[in-house]
């Protein structure tokens, strides 16, 4: 039998909430799929749409962007800017025909280890039936 498809996911997590939330999941020993490799950035507001496109072109099967809940951003308003910027790239990815499941955004606070775990589990579950992402992947 062929091996089950294991999606590769890059997760951009803001340092103060989402990365801290994933640390909490760790401290609480909550198990979740290992498909996600997190990249901790300072704030969701620093995540450029280019990061997301770059991840897809480098073969990511899914990309997650996660920051603090509105009003909780360590830098006061970074996540509000992120929300706008990411909404646009999200719509564009959908418009060109990338499966909408492949790109996700979430608010995960430092206390939401469980939520982080759930998001990863769901994400992996939704990506598995889609198979590898080849549309934007670079095969040079």
């Amino acid at each position: 039998m062929a091996e089950e498809f294991e999606p590769k996911i890059v997760a951009f997590l803001c340092k103060w909430c989402s990365s801290a939330g994933s640390d909490l999941a760790g401290v609480s020993r909550m198990e979740y799929p290992y498909n996600v490799v997190p990249i901790t950035v300072m704030c969701s507001g620093s995540i450029s749409p280019l990061y997301i496109l770059s991840a897809f072109s480098r073969g990511a099967d899914g990309v997650l962007v996660s920051g603090c809940h509105p009003g909780d951003c360590h830098y006061i308003k970074g996540n509000f800017y992120a929300r706008r910027r990411i909404a646009l790239i999200n719509k564009l990815l959908d418009f060109i025909g990338l499966e909408p499941q492949r790109f996700q955004m979430s608010w995960v606070s430092a206390a939401e280890g469980t939520k982080y775990t759930e998001i990863i589990k769901d994400f992996v579950k939704e990506l598995k039936p889609l198979g590898p992402q080849t549309k934007l992947g670079r095969d040079l």
């Binding site: 704030c43 507001g45 992120a82």
Partner: peptide, 18 residues
């Protein structure tokens, strides 16, 4: 925080070491 760097269309501003 880097919000500026994600906003700039020209990649003209970035935060040191990230």
């Amino acid at each position: 925080c880097g919000t500026c760097s994600a906003t700039c269309l020209r990649a003209a501003i970035e935060v040191k070491n990230l």
